[in-house]
Design a protein around this nucleic acid. Structure first.
Lengths: 389, 389
DNA sequence: GTACTTCTGTCGAGTGTCCGACAGAAGTTG
DNA sequence: CAACTTCTGTCGGACACTCGACAGAAGTAC
């Protein structure tokens, strides 16, 4: 029985009395008290009142998400977003800015450092209250080392030591992962905490997926798992993708491809994000193009459903804002193609976390590290030592 | 520091001295001795000699795979196979028989019980030496309960309590999983122990895959993960599958489909297994059909590679015996379609475990349960109590 | 205000774990 | 065979952990 066992019981947020904790763990109440004592001195657990049942009222103890904070960072090809969140993943403050990831790690991580510091100051939080940083990068990431490996759209970042850089200025653990993986975590953390098998599909300039299966993020051997964008689909056989291959889903269903389709049909589309605006405006050609994009996406998602058998599929990214057409297209194909056994309990929805999925997920990654049993036990140990001195 | 920590160090099979174990764990040699004492009395660890370096020779201690045995059972649509294996997964004795899974659980599990008992007797092993049983079933299985859920080809088995049945006659833990998952485990256990991301593709009457990612078997929300067979492929768009859908991979690339293709080309194919014989005999039509089947399979495997990013893909099942043609077809498409990043370190091979993959995997599943840290600690505890009495 | 109930922190005792020292065992060396 | 080296099992002490008892704290009931 480790100290973290008591803490883990409280992590769900529900306050409990000492007697309750003693009953569920089987430990003596005095032992529980000793455990809680350390956790309370660390601020991780706080009393939240309690009502009497005829005698001295029991003090209800609860996890205190405000004990410390984490920073979640979502870096895209052309945007950066950072947020300060409490230990429950609730965003306290955030800031986004258009950037160019191709400016290289020095400049971009400089922005991250400045923004993180500024956000902390804004929240009147000392740097010592920061517990960890989570970062999402738009490319394949070796999670164990926190480095991007052969990223196609991140010149200058290949094998760059992201955790090392950030730790030099903000001395806390830094967790790095692929941006879509991060978004999957974000969606799960924000309102699907009990869902163990979830796939997040991001449709924007490119197409990718973050796969959570059996409760854990699937990264694959090289960290490239979830690459939906370059799966072959029949309808795109004669279209050449930016990756050089032909028939990639991305080449016919991502936003640039839809814009191209619409231009060919005579619609004026200046910028990529006009696609979403046109759909929302009810433009027939745009609606049709997105619906067809949904069907194309559905082909690959149907395969994904058969292969991974998730219980929830979340559609996110810029195109998710285009409304129900995309979803309808996906559903149309998936529910026809995939096996009844796999689709029977399958939900396909759009992202609720939306633009914040990335930073929430990055924060969740950091929180997962900070509140892991081993980390808690270590802190408790150190805390006890500090108190003993 | 639990007793199992010491045991886990020895599980790789390499013998070690007490001093060596003390150094790597950081525990005192006397503590290590105490731990080993219990493990040795249980037979899990045995001395295997040792050479002097000028004084009293140290005794080398090693994991003893012969301490107990497990039974692995592989049930298919029309065959059953059972094996007794040691704790290293080495098959000591096995027996196979054609059966009909549709005879229902009572009869089939009756055969399992009889065969297991007979094999144990044959090896002069008492029933008390049996530690656990692993079972593979040809359909979706809810691993946590050991029941088949809505299996398409197993009438009478739906939600049948397999562990309960077997435990009534052989009082040991029973682990049940899907047959292809089991085969993936078997291939990994037999010669790919350090591979954490592995996909086993079975091509026979049907097509399915077992996906091991991040070191753990991926089962999905309903236990139907890895269902390659009913993924849609363009070339089969107008072929109706036995599942009722159109365009399923299985309907054009599984053995019955290849047999049909060959008959259409004028080749006499009486039974399904003649397909393999014809290919091995060098029949041109047969070779071509299998090669094309490989390409069709490659379409879906290419998607699988992008989505899951494994480092090894193993092709098994009856058709794997047809030689290099199938593999060549798969490779041809996969290396063209999938991203360089994912294929760079990808190996595609045929099964080495072959027909035994199932029983080896079932045994491995059982062993994983028996030798898990928690199980070892429990046994050590009980062993210590028994010794104290 | 007083009696009663229920909870809290403290403290000594009991328990189990782990360590280091030691004497003996089992080899090598000459 | 004697001296030396290196390993092994044993055993008492140190330590940490956990428990239950107890007195005091903080409410309710009348």
């Amino acid at each position: 029985m480790r100290p973290s066992d008591v803490f883990d019981l409280l992590r769900d947020g529900r306050p409990r009395t000492r007697a309750e904790l003693a009953a569920t763990t089987g430990l003596a109440r005095s032992t529980i008290s000793a455990r809680l004592d350390v956790l309370m001195r660390l601020g991780l657990v706080v009393p939240v009142g309690g009502v009497s049942t005829g005698g001295r009222p029991p003090s209800l103890l609860a996890f205190n998400p405000g004990a410390r904070v984490v920073v979640g960072v979502d870096l895209g090809a052309s945007h950066a977003r950072a947020a300060v969140a409490d230990l429950d993943g609730r965003v306290l403050a955030e800031r986004g800015e258009p950037i160019d990831i191709a400016d290289g790690p020095e400049r971009v991580l400089g922005w991250v450092q400045e923004t993180a510091t500024a956000l902390l100051a804004e929240q009147r939080r000392d740097v010592s209250e920061l517990a960890a940083i989570g970062v999402g990068l738009p490319g394949p990431v070796e999670h164990s080392t926190g480095r991007a490996i052969n990223p196609p759209i991140m010149p200058g970042w290949d094998r760059y030591d992201v955790p090392g850089h950030l730790q030099r200025v903000l001395d806390v653990p830094v967790l790095v992962d692929n941006d879509v993986n991060i978004m999957a975590l974000g969606e799960q953390h924000s309102h699907l905490r009990e869902v163990a098998d979830l796939v997040f599909v991001k449709v924007g300039t490119g197409i990718g997926a973050g796969i959570i299966s059996g409760g854990t993020l699937q990264r694959g051997a090289q960290g490239t798992a979830g690459d939906l964008g370059h799966v072959h689909v029949a309808r795109g056989a004669d279209v050449t993708c930016r990756c050089g291959n032909q028939g990639c889903l991305e080449a016919i269903a991502a936003i640039p491809a839809l814009a191209r389709t619409m231009r060919a049909a005579g619609v004026a589309v200046a910028e990529d994000h006009d696609v979403v605006a046109l759909v929302r405006g009810g433009d027939r050609t745009a609606v049709q193009a997105v619906r067809q994009g949904g069907r194309d996406l559905g082909e690959v998602v149907a395969a994904l459903v058969n292969l991974v058998n998730p219980s929830v599929i979340v559609i996110g990214g810029a195109l998710a804002a285009a409304g129900e057409g995309l979803l309808a297209g996906i559903r149309e194909v998936v529910y026809q193609r995939s096996l009844p056994l796999a689709t029977e309990h399958l939900h396909i929805t759009t992202s609720r976390a939306g633009e914040r999925a990335g930073v929430i997920g990055a924060a969740a990654l950091a929180i997962g590290h900070v509140l892991s049993p081993t980390a808690i036990d270590r802190v408790v140990e150190e805390g006890a030592v500090r108190l003993a001195q």
